[in-house]
Design a protein around this nucleic acid. Structure first.
Ligand code: NAD
Ligand code: NAD
Lengths: 205, 205
DNA sequence: CAGACATTGTGATATTCAGCACAATCATTC
DNA sequence: GAATGATTGTGCTGAATATCACAATGTCTG
C-alpha cells in the first residue's frame, strides 16, 4: 500500500499490463481477468493481482477488471495521465528517428526541443523542430519546466552532456549511449542499448 | 557453477561489466578491482565478485582482475567471441538508423539482410544493403544460418512477422514494437521501447 | 432469489537474490 | 624472506520477490 515500498520491477510490469489492456480495448473487450492479462503480458495471474494490490482494489470478484477503469488507474499511478515535456540531445541518425516517432509526436511524451553541438546542424530542422545549440539548454529547460531528457549522443560525450542536464535540473534521463552514467542518487537513468540486449540473448543460444 | 542455474540478471550485468572493462582498457588501465568495476557499473563490489564466481575464478587475490583476460572470459561466457549474423525486418525510420549504427556495421553483430513488405521499398538501398521482399525471408535465414532477428515493424504487424521468423527457425528476437509477443518457450525475446522506459520513470518524479 | 460458479485480494510460504564478513591467497615492501 | 596490505571467492544471513492457496465476494442462471 505504501507508495515508497513498491519494487521497481512492479512498476515496470505495470507498463506491460497497460500495453496489454490497451490492446484488448482496441479489440473491443471490456473486461479482463488476471489470467488473461497475465497470459498476454507473460506473467502469472497471481503476479498480476499482487502487483495491482499494491495500489488498491481495482477488480471485481467473479468478473475481473474493467479494462477502461484499470487503464485509467494505472495511468494515474504511473503519472502518465498528464503531458510530459521532453528534450532530446543529439540530432544524429537515432535522433531523427525519434523525432519522427509517432509516440513522441502525438502522445503524452512530447519532445519540445532538440539540441546538438554540431554548428552545421544547429538551425536546420528535424521533423517539425529547429535544432538548437547547447548554449540554450539551461534556458529552455527552465522555461518549459522540462524534467526528462533523451540522450542520443556518442558514448564519448554522454557523461559530459549528462552532467550539463543534471546541472540544469533534469531529473530523469533516457540514455541510448552504451555507457553507464554517473549521476546523483535522485536522478533516474534508464538505458536503451540494442547491443547489450543482443549480448544477453546469445548466452542462451 | 552450473550453467543453467545462473539467473538472467547476472547475465545482463555481465554486459555492463564488459562495457566498463572495455572503457577502462581504452583509458590504458590493465587491472581492475571489483570495487572499481562496481563503482562504474553501479553495483556493489560483492555483487561483481559473486556474479563472476558463477563461471570460475578470474581474479587474483590482492590485485584484482586483469582487464584483458576478464574481457575475453566474459565474451566467451556470453558467446560473443564470435560473429553473429542478424537480419532486420522493417526498413522504416528506425530501421535506417539501425542499419547505419556503427555497432552493426563493424561489430560482431552484423546485419546481413534487411526485409520489408512495402513493394516501394524493396530493391532500394539502405546503407550498404538492398531491401529484400518478405518472400525471401526463409531462404536467407536458412542460407546464412541466421538465428537472431531485429524487429522494427509497426505494432500491428509485429506478431505476424514474429510468427514468420519463428517458423523460419529464428531463435532470438529483439523487438522494437510496443507489444508483448507470443512465442514458443525456446524463443527468446527482448524488448526495446522508449515509451515504456519513460513511463516507468515518471512514477518517481 | 438461491445456488453454482468464477475471480479477486491477501496472508502464509517458498524461492531467489543481494550483502556481509572473513579465511585464503597473492603482490609488495623492507 | 618475513611482514604487511590488498583483494578475491564464498558460506552464511537477511531481504526481496514470487507462488500458493483459500476465504471473501461478487456475477450469472434458471
Ligand atoms: N543509430 C542507432 O540506431 C543507435 C542505436 C542504439 C544506440 N545508439 C547510440 O545512440 C547514440 C547516438 O547514435 P547516432 O547513431 O544517432 O549517432 P550520430 O553520430 O549519428 O549522432 C550523434 C549526434 O550527437 C551530436 N553530439 C556529439 N557530441 C555532442 C555534445 N557534446 N553535445 C551535443 N550533441 C553532441 C553530434 O553532433 C551528432 O549529431 C550513440 O551513443 C549510439 O551508440 C544508436
Ligand atoms: N522511430 C523510432 O524512433 C522508434 C523508436 C522506438 C520504437 N519504435 C517502434 O519500431 C517500429 C518501427 O518504427 P518506425 O518508426 O521505423 O516505423 P516506420 O513506419 O517508419 O517503419 C515500419 C516499416 O515496417 C514495414 N512493414 C510494415 N508491415 C510489415 C510487414 N508485415 N512485414 C515487413 N515489413 C513491414 C513498413 O513497410 C515500414 O517500412 C514500430 O513498432 C515503432 O513503434 C520506433
Amino acid at each position: 500500500m505504501t507508495q515508497t515500498s513498491v519494487p521497481d520491477v512492479v512498476i515496470r510490469r505495470l507498463t506491460t499490463y497497460l500495453q496489454t489492456l490497451k490492446h484488448m480495448a482496441q479489440r473491443g473487450e471490456h473486461v479482463a481477468s488476471s489470467t488473461e492479462i497475465g497470459r498476454w503480458a507473460g506473467v502469472s495471474p497471481a503476479q498480476v493481482r499482487k502487483d495491482l494490490s499494491h495500489f488498491g482494489e481495482f477488480g471485481r470478484q467473479g468478473l475481473g477488471y474493467e479494462i477502461g477503469f484499470l487503464c485509467t488507474q494505472i495511468e494515474r499511478i504511473l503519472k502518465i495521465d498528464q503531458d510530459w515535456r521532453l528534450i532530446l540531445v543529439g540530432a544524429g541518425a537515432l535522433g531523427h528517428a525519434l523525432m519522427n516517432y509517432g509516440a513522441f509526436v502525438t502522445g503524452r511524451f512530447q519532445i519540445v526541443a532538440v539540441f546538438d553541438s554540431d554548428p552545421a546542424k544547429v538551425n536546420t530542422r528535424v521533423g517539425q523542430r529547429e535544432i538548437l545549440p547547447m548554449e540554450r539548454l539551461a534556458e529552455i529547460i527552465a522555461e518549459r519546466h522540462v524534467e526528462i531528457a533523451i540522450l542520443a549522443v556518442p558514448a564519448t560525450a554522454a557523461q559530459h552532456v549528462a552532467d550539463q542536464l543534471v546541472a540544469c535540473g533534469v531529473r530523469s534521463i533516457l540514455s541510448y549511449a552504451p555507457i553507464t552514467l554517473n549521476t546523483p542518487r535522485d536522478v533516474h537513468v534508464r538505458y536503451i542499448d540494442p547491443v547489450a540486449s543482443l549480448q544477453t540473448m546469445t548466452y542462451y543460444l
